Amino acid sequence: NLRWTSEAKTKLKNIPFFARSQAKARIEQLARQAEQDIVTPELVEQARLEFG
Rank of each mutant, 00 (worst) to 15 (best):
I15V: 07
V44G: 00
R48S: 11
A25M: 11
N14K: 14
Q36S: 13
A8E: 00
F17M: 11
Q46D: 04
Q22R: 14
T5V: 04
E45F: 05
K11N: 06
P41K: 11
A19E: 10
L30F: 09
R20W: 05
P41W: 12
K13G: 09
Q33I: 12
F51C: 06
Q29R: 08
A23K: 02
V39S: 00
K13H: 10
K24V: 13
E45S: 05
A47K: 01
S6C: 07
A34P: 00
L43Q: 03
A25W: 10
I38Y: 09
Q36F: 09
E45Q: 07
P16N: 04
P16W: 05
Q29K: 09
E35Y: 12
L49I: 11
P41G: 13
R3L: 13
A8N: 01
Q22S: 10
T5N: 05
K13Q: 13
F18C: 08
Q22G: 08
Q36V: 14
P16Y: 05
Q33F: 09
T10N: 14
P16R: 04
A47R: 02
A8C: 02
P41Y: 07
I38H: 07
A19P: 03
E7W: 04
F18L: 09
E42H: 05
Q33C: 08
E35N: 15
I38D: 04
L12W: 08
L12C: 02
A31I: 02
E28C: 04
F51T: 05
F17L: 13
Q36Y: 10
V44A: 02
F18D: 07
P16D: 04
L49K: 13
A34H: 11
N14C: 11
A8K: 00
P41T: 09
F17G: 09
N14W: 09
A8L: 01
L12Q: 00
E28L: 04
V39N: 00
E45L: 07
V39Y: 00
E45H: 06
A19G: 07
P16T: 03
A34S: 12
W4T: 00
R48W: 15
Q22P: 04
F17P: 11
F17Q: 10
Q33R: 11
L30A: 04
Q29I: 08
L49P: 05
K9E: 13
D37L: 13
A8G: 02
F18S: 10
R48N: 07
E35G: 15
G52A: 14
L43V: 05
R48L: 09
K24Q: 05
L2I: 13
D37P: 08
A19N: 12
F17Y: 13
T5R: 02
I15C: 03
W4Y: 02
A34D: 04
E28T: 03
Q29D: 09
F18R: 10
S6P: 14
F18I: 09
R32W: 05
A47G: 06
T40V: 04
N1H: 13
E28Y: 03
E45I: 06
G52Q: 15
A19I: 15
N1E: 14
S6I: 12
L30C: 03
G52S: 15
K13L: 11
I27M: 02
F18H: 15
A8R: 00
S21C: 09
I27F: 01
K24F: 09
A19T: 08
V44E: 00
L2E: 02
I38W: 14
L43H: 06
E7F: 03
A19Y: 15
E7C: 06
K11W: 06
L2A: 03
K9H: 07
I27E: 00
L30N: 02
A31M: 03
V39T: 00
R3D: 05
Q29S: 08
R26T: 06
K9I: 14
L2S: 02
N14M: 14
E45M: 07
Q22K: 14
I38M: 08
F18V: 08
K11C: 07
E7A: 11
R48T: 10
L2M: 10
A25C: 08
E7G: 11
S6H: 14
V44W: 03
A23R: 03
N14L: 15
I15L: 07
L49D: 06
R26I: 10
E45P: 01
P41E: 12
E42M: 07
T40Q: 03
P16F: 06
Q36L: 14
E35Q: 15
A8D: 00
W4C: 00
I15N: 01
L43A: 02
E42F: 06
T10G: 08
K13I: 06
P16C: 06
N1V: 13
R26W: 14
N14F: 10
Q29F: 12
L12Y: 07
R3S: 10
D37C: 09
A34Q: 14
P41D: 07
L2N: 01
E35K: 15
V44M: 06
W4Q: 00
E35C: 09
A47C: 05
Q33A: 13
R3W: 08
R26A: 07
Q33M: 13
S6L: 11
T10M: 13
T5A: 05
K13A: 11
I38Q: 07
N1M: 13
E45A: 08
R32T: 05
F51W: 12
G52H: 13
L12K: 01
Q36E: 07
L43F: 11
R3N: 06
K24G: 02
R32L: 10
V39A: 01
A25V: 11
E42S: 06
E42Y: 06
F51Q: 06
L12A: 02
R26H: 12
A47I: 11
R32S: 05
G52V: 15
P16A: 05
P16V: 04
R20T: 03
S6Q: 14
F18E: 10
P41A: 15
F51N: 06
P16S: 04
T10I: 14
I15P: 03
P41I: 14
L2K: 02
F17H: 11
T5Q: 04
R3A: 10
E28M: 04
I38G: 02
E7S: 07
T10D: 14
Q46S: 07
F17W: 14
L2V: 07
E7R: 08
L49S: 09
S21F: 08
V39Q: 00
K9M: 10
A47S: 06
I38L: 10
L43E: 01
K11D: 06
Q46H: 07
N14S: 12
E42N: 10
R20Y: 04
L49A: 10
E42I: 06
A47M: 07
L30P: 00
Q36K: 13
I27N: 00
F18M: 11
Q22V: 10
A47E: 05
K9S: 08
P41N: 06
Q33Y: 09
A25H: 10
A19R: 13
F17A: 12
K24I: 15
E50Y: 09
D37I: 11
P41H: 07
L12T: 01
P41C: 05
T10P: 00
L30G: 01
T5G: 03
E42W: 08
R32F: 09
T40G: 04
A31R: 01
E7N: 05
A8S: 04
Q29A: 12
Q22A: 13
T5W: 01
E28Q: 03
R48Y: 14
P41Q: 08
K11Q: 12
L43C: 04
Q36C: 07
G52M: 15
T10Y: 10
W4A: 00
P16E: 03
L2T: 03
R20M: 06
A23N: 02
R20V: 04
A47H: 09
L12F: 14
N1P: 15
T40Y: 06
N1Q: 15
A34N: 13
